[in-house]
Design a protein around this nucleic acid. Structure first.
Lengths: 149, 149
DNA sequence: TTTAATTCCTACCTCATTACTCGGTTTTCA
DNA sequence: TGAAAACCGAGTAATGAGGTAGGAATTAAA
């Protein structure tokens, strides 16, 4: 039940973008350096995020990335699902195209997996990038930029 | 974010044991046949459950397994954590011995992983085997044993 | 108009884990 | 004493995770 680095790095990258959004579009190189991630690997992740419509890119020299929407309009759930796929703990309870099972809907344990899935979605869909920015700023205001992403 | 077969098979096996508890101790072979699982593989899983104190074994001919406690005293969370380890989505928020991270407690994203972890635990710890038995019996009472584990 | 910075794209690689199988040994009931 | 069962440790094939490598396309700036 672990999140892969895709999801974790993706949230970090998106929050980094959000926090530095005042600087306009931002080169992947800068995000990778600040967050200590492989630039080449991050490239693949942000390609996924771009195809999911969560970031916009500007090509060429001085190019870079920006969020496609306001931070308050982007949830952690959208980011995680774009990179990890469904957060369902078992394929028989995927939101779309659940894996078919001989036991179909007549299964008691399936209800457990649905509850887990729903509670995870409920948590991640209730957290927006703006919430994270606010928390980051609030904590750093009193502590002097000791907090990280 | 997928549960492995260990956790899924483990819950099935435990619920099978619970439902057939009136028959006394039950051979692994029977569980494996009813639930359509590899007997040899299940053997490894139930060894873990035994070491975790969730089932008791009786060796020799006519031996088998029984639940170590009442179904109402065994939660899905205990079963899953015994077989899967912590359900924390990221190692930095493991309940005991969280992986140390340079960003230690000064990390905004870490709070997301804690919320996910807590909500998963809250769900699985609130479901006991007795709850599953009751649901199984209730559904089958009206539908005539159409429901599965 | 060239150069450098940057995004975009496809392929490949290595390692750890998952989901088992295999072949026994030990224990105990009938 | 034989068969049925739990117990045990090793091996194995497939899969996915977490990258790396190398370049092509695009564009601002010199």
């Amino acid at each position: 039940m672990k999140l892969s680095t895709k999801g974790r790095y993706g949230v970090k990258a998106m929050l980094d973008l959000a926090i530095h959004s005042a600087e306009g579009h931002i080169a992947l190189k800068n995000i990778a350096e600040r967050q200590d991630l492989s630039e080449h690997y991050l490239e693949q992740l942000i390609a996924t995020l771009r195809k999911a419509g969560l970031v916009k890119s500007i090509r060429g020299a001085q190019g870079g990335y920006t969020l496609a929407h306001e931070p308050s309009e982007i949830t952690v759930g959208e980011i995680l699902r774009a990179l990890e796929g469904s957060l369902a703990p078992v394929d028989c309870v995927l939101e779309n195209e659940p894996a078919d099972c001989v036991y179909s809907s007549k299964c008691v344990t399936k209800k457990i997996w649905m509850k887990i899935r729903d509670s995870i979605n409920q948590v991640v869909d209730s957290i927006t990038l703006q919430d994270l920015i606010d928390e980051y700023n609030e904590l750093n205001k009193s502590e002097g930029y000791m907090y990280y992403i």
